[in-house]
Design a protein around this nucleic acid. Structure first.
Length: 636
DNA sequence: TTAGGGTTAG
């Protein structure tokens, strides 16, 4: 049998396991509602009550009885191991059953390596390990990402003849996959083709997914003799985690067509895909499934729903769900803070962050991406500076590129260009060109030609294949009416043969997703769409609109430039939205790039002239257009 | 008398 060769075959000598006081019942006993599919587990207070009765009845020396209590604790969702250990230590001659359960308690605790120490001491007694022992031990190694220790356990399991047990082998596949040793998982999987069960296949599927080998995962999924809900969930999450969102949703569709039962993990992954794609109708469908199938609103599911609604433009729905969540964890708070930030509701995001702190949570890097993003999008400069300081000084969180990105964006937009430059120059890691590009955009807004030129030249050196830098630099020159420089940069752009990122916009209508690119004429209702565009053009011109062509960088005349922006993907999506939705309905659009100045202006006018609310999620944030105004207050 | 695999935030 294959065995990963560990660096050392010697397990650490067992340390003396000290007596611990019985864990006192001061923990939060309000557990999340149990999943309907799971059998009820005895809670820790219930186990303690039973323990007290055993002591009062004079049966505390009855080791099988105490072992059963230990087993209950091992089955509880989260057990501080001190109490389990005190029970275990009260057994004079622990059986393999009692020891296995103690190993399992350690494996589930915050100190999984303790189970290895117990195993070491077990090896020196007359109590012999069995197949259960190795399953729990390997689980502990996987949780601790302890590759060497796991490999030693692997060796012992093989030596003692337990290597062929399917539970042990599956635990090994899982261990090597958790420790990024996929080749070891694969060898174990291939070696035992005749004795695989569905968990063996699922473990290998997970290994491929985690290693981003989606092709291999797809092939394995096809070959599986039997697929259960976990096989489907793994495949769906594999697609979603690797950005193949449409395929994830298609896989979910197939799963439902096959009549498979759904579970929490399936729904969370599918909600994530709906959120990332901004598909509100799909997300709502999943929400209705959650309700019709009577899924309890667990922390994960509730958080995924909050995120979905926020990313699909329904921030009020997110807020309502957040308010009604019976239990929240750090993910829930982070999702809500980031959601408010993306909608530009900066002050509420900051107030929520304060509540989060007041409730005793400890912020993490993502929390501050939300907080700083909120400050940036709402122009809350002094709050942003204060929180950046708080993050580094009070919470000792090292700023990452994203944090710097928020700060540079915030300072740049507000006109603190020198401060932004100083911040970038003070960075201890090399700045991502995106930071300079952000600042270049700010130079354009504030007409800082000199600094913009300096940054633009720097960027062309750092990242010559990015077309956006040429476009920004040329627009800075254009703003300064330096036409020769505009022509020069434009020539450079052509010579570099860069690939301009194709802009697209999505709109959902009657369960179908419609995708448009600029100048698109592929849609089956293209003729009607272009007629609607003309109608829009006439109506907005009547209300005094004149086009802003500064975002167009082609060697074409003004009229052609006007046509080019008129056919931007979001204009086509908006025209289609006006065609397919009823009077007064909200139009929701998801765009991959940032909305250009002219489209932003036009969207405001359309919202007033056509009396429609238009919600656009662009590459950076949400814009809610209503009555001729945008929620971003033209600050984006 | 005890077992394994899948999920979420920028």
């Amino acid at each position: 049998m294959f065995a990963y060769k560990p660096k050392s075959f010697l397990l650490s000598l067992p340390k003396h396991i000290s007596n611990s006081q019985i864990f006192l019942a001061n923990s939060n006993s309000q557990l999340s509602p149990p999943l309907s599919s799971l059998p009820p587990r005895p809670s820790i207070p219930q186990t303690k009550q039973a323990h007290a009765q055993i002591i009062v009845s004079g049966l505390a020396a009855d080791s099988p009885l105490i072992s059963h209590l230990l087993c209950f604790l091992a089955l509880s969702p989260s057990t501080p191991f001190h109490y389990s250990l005190s029970l275990y230590q009260s057994i004079k001659y622990p059986s393999v059953f009692a020891t296995n359960n103690m190993i399992r308690c350690f494996a589930k605790s915050d100190s999984p390596p303790q189970s290895l120490l117990l195993f070491s001491s077990m090896l020196r007694t007359c109590v012999k390990p069995n197949n259960h022992t190795f399953t729990f031990l390997l689980q502990a190694c996987s949780r601790a990402l302890a590759l060497n220790e796991g490999a030693q356990v692997h060796t012992v399991a093989v030596k003692l003849g337990f290597g062929g047990y399917v539970f042990v082998r599956n635990a090994l596949i899982h261990l090597y996959c958790s420790c990024s040793r996929i080749e070891c998982s694969k060898r174990l999987f291939e070696e035992n083709a005749s004795s695989r069960d569905v968990v063996t296949w699922n473990s290998m599927l997970t290994a491929f997914v985690r290693d981003e080998q989606i092709g291999a995962a797809e092939k394995l999924f096809e070959e599986m003799p039997e697929r259960d809900v976990i096989s489907w969930s793994t495949m769906i999450s594999g697609y979603v985690q690797n950005g193949r969102l449409g395929e994830g949703l298609e896989c979910f569709k197939q799963m439902r067509e096959k009549g498979m039962r759904l579970n929490e993990a399936t729904l969370v992954s599918v909600l994530s895909a709906s959120a990332q794609l901004g598909l509100l109708e799909h997300g709502r469908l999943v929400h209705s499934l959650v309700e019709s199938l009577n899924f309890p609103l667990t922390v994960s599911l509730g958080t995924a729903l909050i995120d979905m609604y926020a990313k699909c433009g329904c921030i009020e729905q997110s807020k309502l769900l957040f308010k009604n969540m019976p239990k929240k964890d750090i993910w829930t708070w982070n999702v809500m803070i980031c959601g408010l930030a993306s909608h530009g509701i900066g002050k509420e995001a900051l107030a929520l962050f304060q509540r989060f702190i007041d409730e005793g949570f400890h912020p993490v890097n993502v929390t501050f991406i939300g907080v700083l993003g909120a400050c940036s999008r709402a122009g809350l400069v002094s709050e942003g500076r204060r929180h950046f300081k708080l993050m580094t000084e009070k919470y000792s969180i090292l700023p990452e590129m994203e944090h710097y990105g928020c700060m540079v964006d915030m300072l740049g937009r507000a006109g603190f260009l020198d401060e932004a430059v100083q911040l970038i120059e003070k960075m201890t890691v090399p700045p991502d060109p995106v930071l300079w590009a952000t600042l270049l955009g700010a130079c354009k807004i504030h007409g800082s030609i000199e600094l913009g030129e300096k940054i633009g030249k720097k960027l062309l050196k750092l990242d010559p294949t990015h077309d956006g830098h040429y476009v920004q630099l040329a627009s800075i020159y254009a703003k300064a009416r330096k036409w020769e420089d505009v022509i020069r940069v434009r020539r450079l752009l052509v010579e570099q043969n860069t690939n301009k990122a194709a802009g697209w916009s999505l709109i959902e209508a009657q369960g179908t997703v419609h995708k448009f690119v600029a100048g698109d004429r592929e849609h089956e209702r293209s003729l009607e769409i272009y007629k609607m565009l003309e109608k829009i053009g006439i109506r907005i011109a009547e209300s005094g609109y004149s086009p802003n062509v500064s975002s167009v960088l082609h060697d074409i005349g003004e009229e052609e430039k006007e046509n080019a922006i008129k056919e931007h993907s979001e204009r086509l999506a908006m025209a289609f939205g006006l065609l397919v939705t009823g009077a007064g309905d909200c139009i929701r659009i998801v765009k991959n790039l940032r909305v250009c100045e002219d489209c932003h202006e036009v969207s405001k006018i359309i919202s007033r002239v056509f009396e429609r609310e238009i919600i656009v999620r662009d590459g950076s944030r949400f814009h809610h257009f209503k009555d001729g105004k945008c929620s971003c207050l033209d600050y984006w």
